[in-house]
Design a binder for these strands. Structure first.
Lengths: 206, 206
DNA sequence: TTGAATTAAACAAACGTTTAATTAAAATTC
DNA sequence: GAATTTTAATTAAACGTTTGTTTAATTCAA
């Protein structure tokens, strides 16, 4: 029963932090939306900041990427395509937590920044391996690996962070997240695959 | 004298909002760092939110891009390279205001979101023109224009928003913005040019 | 009956904003 | 040009809320 309530608070906090930011969300906001007593949040998590840490740790399970990377039967190109599908789906269906992680630079707490850096680093290493592997197999050309990963992450982040901009551009109602997701997901996947194929292909070596 | 003080407050606010976020910065913070009386901020700007609006309007002068676009002597490729140089320099030397604009999605105020969307839209239109022009001249292939712009913006944003991550990756001291800027600027320019050349080149048409 | 879960109430500190009093500057009058 | 009036700038203090957190009392379950 207690675990359920804890999870419920985390889910509500994720939503609110994602929508209004960490500083912009009060503990009373969370308590009210989660239908729990205000004191329960300190009781369960200790503090507002610890609540954010708990949230990040709970959602830090990016293990699927590792499994993908171990699959020896896939070509580098197939791996790239799967990584794109994986990340676009993942981020598009978890806009809130992704928003929180993006906004967390401005966090006063180094603990939280380190936590997020650790998560990002783990995923970065996986993609780095794929790129290195493709280069070793003479399928990918030489590129700036750090920034190539940055481009993939950045492009996807842009569609969540600049949501308001893109909704304006495509005449989507500002409150309608579902339509946005439905429209952007396939667009993003196609674009990123086309982009990375041109960027990485050894035939385009200068 | 009054104008000077106003500008000074804006400059301090830009720095603090950029570093700690809008909600994370108190009016007292700004007053103290700017060495002005607390009440002066309400006196000059009306409110904290109006201060942010004033800040955004002051920094919304993206007119250089328009001039570039009107230069008929440049080839589409030259225009692309200049846009990249322009944006990387612009963002890298104005990390704070760029951070503010990125974080402003989570703003409660639609006025602020609309203001930022307007600025972004203006620049988007300029880049769109360059891409369309290149396509008409059969130099660029057919690509998703909205997301291609998103990739450029997103890649650059990533290096400012995920600053903590990249500083960790490159072993740069977290407080040393200058070294970060110096290292990232040329890297970013080279990467983006290489990326867009492969992505846009009509010879890479599938 | 013991320990965990839950509550309403209170805590002090910080928040954005306003007030009313004072000083500085500018405009007006003589 | 000095004196006077008017307007603008500046201040310290206080305003009423809201903030995150804690307390002490109570309910619930083991």
């Amino acid at each position: 029963m207690a675990a359920d309530k804890r999870e419920h608070i985390l889910a509500i906090a994720e939503k609110l932090f994602g929508e209004k930011g960490f500083e912009g969300t009060s503990v009373r906001d969370i308590a009210q939306h989660a239908n729990v007593n205000l004191a329960m949040i300190s009781y369960y998590f200790g503090s507002k900041e610890k609540l954010l840490e708990a949230l990040l740790e709970q959602r830090a399970n990016y293990t699927i990427l590792e499994a993908l990377n171990k699959d020896e039967s896939l070509t580098p190109w197939e791996k790239i395509d799967r990584v794109i599908d994986f990340y676009v789906d993942k981020i598009m269906s978890n806009l809130c937590i992704h928003n929180i992680m993006q906004q967390a630079n401005n966090s006063r707490s180094d603990e939280i920044k380190d936590l997020i850096t650790k998560i990002k680093l783990k995923n970065f290493e996986q993609i780095k391996k794929i790129l290195h592997d493709g280069q070793k197999k003479k399928v990918f050309r030489k590129v700036d690996i750090e920034l190539t990963v940055g481009t993939v992450m950045g492009t996807i982040s842009q569609t969540t962070l600049a949501q308001y901009f893109y909704k304006t551009l495509f005449n989507i109602d500002k409150a309608d997240d579902e339509t946005y997701r439905k429209k952007m997901s396939p667009k993003l996947k196609t674009h990123l695959k086309q982009l990375l194929h041109a960027h990485l292909d050894i035939k385009n070596e200068e």
